[in-house]
């Protein structure tokens, strides 16, 4: 099928990851909120994890696409 699912997965997690990361930075000084997640800025950390995951997905889709092209045409 024409769509490599890694593109949408990678894109979605990159966007969500970036959003969480920014939100984490913006609310980093809100101690009341941090108390809930055991004093850890979990939005920042997890946003970063999602962003890296998303980018890796995109990268692997890119590699697959460029490896496929010369073969097909």
């Amino acid at each position: 099928m024409g769509l490599d699912i890694r593109w949408p997965i990678g894109l979605m997690f990159s966007i969500i990851g970036a959003l969480l990361l920014i939100h984490g930075v913006a609310t980093g000084s809100d101690t009341e909120m941090l108390k809930r997640s055991l004093g850890m800025n979990v939005n920042l950390v997890w946003g970063l994890v999602l962003l890296v995951f998303g980018l890796l997905m995109l990268l692997s889709a890119k590699i697959a696409a460029s490896a496929k092209k010369p073969k097909e045409k």
Partner: peptide
């Protein structure tokens, strides 16, 4: 609801 601050909660 116990652990997730806004953001992670949405996730």
């Amino acid at each position: 609801t116990k652990y997730c601050p806004s953001g992670l909660l949405g996730l």
